[in-house]
């Protein structure tokens, strides 16, 4: 998984390229968990092909940690097949998922 980190205003944006499988989610976990400490974090999924339960596990840990610090975690830019994995997992409404991350991130 290739992870590119950038900053827009108060937001930390991680652009993900690859698959959130066992291997990819270990790589994401190492980068993401230290970041979810209250300041807003956005994950750009436009380069993600698929998500396995290992990926969902990492995302759920990050969301729980971010919620505990009263922070925001937003996911966006998903292809229809990737969005479908979230719906099948029953997580389509658990995560905040937007179509276009740029509007969210540039709004503050």
């Amino acid at each position: 998984m290739e992870i590119t980190q950038s900053q827009t205003g108060s937001w930390v944006v991680l652009a993900l390229a690859g698959n959130l499988d066992t291997t990819g989610s270990e790589e994401l976990e190492a980068v993401l968990l230290p970041l979810v400490n209250g300041s807003p974090v956005a994950l750009d999924f436009s380069g993600v092909g698929y998500v396995t339960s290992a990926g969902f596990r990492t995302l759920m840990i990050a969301l729980k940690q971010q919620t505990a610090s009263q922070g925001t975690l937003v996911l966006g830019g998903m292809s229809a097949p990737v969005r479908r994995f979230f719906d099948i997992a029953g997580l389509g409404r658990v995560f905040k998922i937007v179509d276009d991350l740029t509007t969210v991130v540039s709004a503050g």
């Binding site: 698959n19 499988d21 066992t22 092909g49 698929y50 998500v51 339960s53 097949p81 990737v82 994995f85």
Partner: peptide
């Protein structure tokens, strides 16, 4: 094609892991 390709990958990773 997608979505079948990714679905097969996910299902097989789950079973193998």
């Amino acid at each position: 094609r997608e979505p079948m390709r990714g679905e097969l990958q996910v299902a097989l990773e789950e079973v193998a892991s």
